Amino acid sequence: MRMRKAAVVGAGVGGLTAAIALRRIGWDVSIFERWPRIVAEGTALGIRPDAQAALASLGLGERLRERTVPYRHARIRTPDGRHLADLPLERIERRGGAPVRMLSRVSLIEMLVEEVDPATISTGVEITDPAALRDSHDLVIGADGVRSAVRQAFFAAPTRPRYAGIVAWRGVVHGFEPQDYGETWGRGQMFGMTPQSPGVTNWYAPVRTPKGVRETLGDLRARFAGWHDPIPRVLAAAEEDAVLRHEVHDLAPPLASYVTGNVALLGDAAHAMTPALGQGACQALLDAAGLAACLRDHPGDVPGALRLYDARRRPAAERMVTASRWMTRLAGAGRLAGPRNALMRLGRR
């Protein structure tokens, strides 16, 4: 029997995971990445139990545990340090049977790359004619991010990247572990801290910012001046060239399908979302594992397997998109921050 061929466009979390999963079920996979090298940058990712199970199904469970730290307790506070609520980490652990585990994106990408045959990766290749890939492969996977060339080529929907009005800042602090992890919610901005590895703390700060405005690290420090300790100290220790900053985009309106013919989208190419729930990487992992499972169970019917993938993954992913958008608005509330805080305190009683 001829080995089936798949082209994966994009070598991020979703694309690499899809390539690994497909190879495990007998597919010949080629990966195309437009950057000159696979970009392994970023700070901490919270890997939830379902995404941990997806990695375990690819034989990566033990390495995941070796590289991660559990995240079990965290609070939401006001800028003056008052306790508003607890993040639902204990509930996630009860329901999923495992704690959320924190992992740097760099470490995750490295772990995935180790599982991929280097000969199957072509870097510095920008796919300008996805139709040619479709003609020469049994399956084309668009894992090429929010501005996906694959989505633009094959999906006629008016779905486009939309600026969410937020700039996300991220960084790490070495040799420092705060007394309490969690998030601090203010007016139009929030600040969060999580563990990343022993002795390393991840911080993030989504702030409402007009489109096109580029603030400096000094501006960010001024935004959080007067917030409770250790937030000003963490920002004072941050170095300009080590801090990541990017405008947040989601997709609107949502796609009516993640598949067409022998083409499938996954990750941000299908459902880019705001970062409030920290679910972008987890959803890409679940997409990739779910897609491979459908193809494994329906080996002779690629279009049918893709329709099943869409039926299983799109409703779940779109629920996460909606929840993340709602949580982004809640955490970054402006004039309604006062009523929001009052309701959250009532919910603790």
Rank of each mutant, 00 (worst) to 15 (best):
I92V: 15
R95F: 15
G97W: 01
P99G: 08
P99I: 13
V100S: 05
V100C: 04
V100K: 00
V100W: 02
M102Q: 08
M102N: 02
S104M: 03
S104P: 12
R105M: 09
R105D: 10
V106P: 01
S107Q: 06
S107H: 01
S107F: 01
E110Y: 06
M111G: 07
L112V: 14
V113P: 08
E115K: 02
V116S: 12
A119L: 05
A119F: 06
T120I: 14
T120A: 15
T120S: 15
S122K: 13
S122L: 07
G124H: 00
V125G: 02
V125K: 02
E126A: 13
I127Q: 04
D129L: 09
A131I: 11
L133R: 03
H137K: 01
V140F: 02
V140M: 02
I141N: 01
D144I: 11
V146E: 04
V150R: 01
R151W: 12
F154R: 10
P158T: 08
P158N: 08
T159K: 00
P161H: 00
I166V: 15
V167Q: 00
A168N: 04
A168Q: 12
A168V: 09
R170H: 09
R170C: 14
H174N: 09
G175K: 00
G175D: 00
F176G: 08
E177D: 09
P178W: 14
P178C: 13
P178F: 13
D180N: 14
D180R: 15
Y181Q: 05
Y181I: 04
G182M: 10
R187N: 13
G188V: 13
M190W: 03
M190L: 15
G192S: 10
G192K: 05
T194F: 10
Q196T: 12
Q196M: 13
S197F: 05
S197Y: 02
P198S: 03
G199N: 12
G199P: 14
V200C: 05
V200E: 07
Y204G: 08
Y204E: 00
A205V: 12
A205E: 05
A205C: 13
P206G: 10
P206M: 06
